[in-house]
Amino acid sequence: MKRLIIFLILLSVAAAGCTSVSAGAPPVPVFDTGADPDSWATVPAGTFLQGEHNHEAEIAADYEMMVTAVTNAQFAAYLNEALTEGTLTLSEAGVMGYYPGDEFHGHEHEREIPAGDWLHFPLNEPDSRLTFDGQTFSVIPGYEDHPATMVTWFGAQGYCEWGDGRLPTDLEWEKAARSEDGRPYPWGDDIEPANANFYKSGDPFEGSPNEVGNTTPVGFYNGQIYDGFQTLDSPSPYGLYDMAGNVWQWTGDVYPDTHLRTLRGGGKMDYGYDLRVWKFNSAEPDFYSPSIGFRCARDS
């Protein structure tokens, strides 16, 4: 019995001593996916089957969605321009921007989001793929075409509005991901590691077993072979890539009476079942994470 206890203690100590992930960005493989992050796809108005239980829902007008998530290169360019214009400001915490506030109802667990400056993008975060020299934001080499992460909901909305767009509503996001036939994944009925970036899916960016996995460049799962890793072409029926996996995506909806914001699509740290198109996640609007990104929508 003593031996067993000693063995378990030693095992715990040994396991606890495993090296942690270094704070800086690891070297990253570079692949050209051929995706155009500036392209948009039209999603037609009409009814579709929404949610796990396929309830009929309707979208009144055609709209457009970005074919890929917003990339680091796009977001860095936006930050630089918006800071120069004065639309955004810098504080110790990071890049700040004005938000007119949410209506507050005093509901249990409801957080007040008053009008004022809110964090768009944090500075000095080790998980950031952008660097800042005091004047200009730059992308860590290799991450230009990866989805922009560590962006708060305010930052995502600010980016989309800057480009005359908006964040998609929850319904718009889901229809863009699955079309009208009630499919559980953007590409069809089942998920394989070659379809999307999810937990332990084995993509070339996954890193060592002691790392949480990394983002893949936008549009990565397009049927190409990358360094021996065969992907399956996995767009949604409207041609949108990465609508499942890689990063959760902010949507424009506000949870009534809590002021949480909805996230869709599942990310690199989730099991495959969390990538089903109806799964939702949520976070506070000033929350940021290396697993959260976004894409924009606009009226047709």
Partner: peptide, 19 residues
């Protein structure tokens, strides 16, 4: 632990849970 640094703790807690 932060989101990025959580994998080692995930690994050893899962290992001990499994054992």
């Amino acid at each position: 632990v932060s989101e990025t640094a959580q994998q080692p703790i995930t690994n050893w807690t899962m290992l001990l849970t499994d054992i």
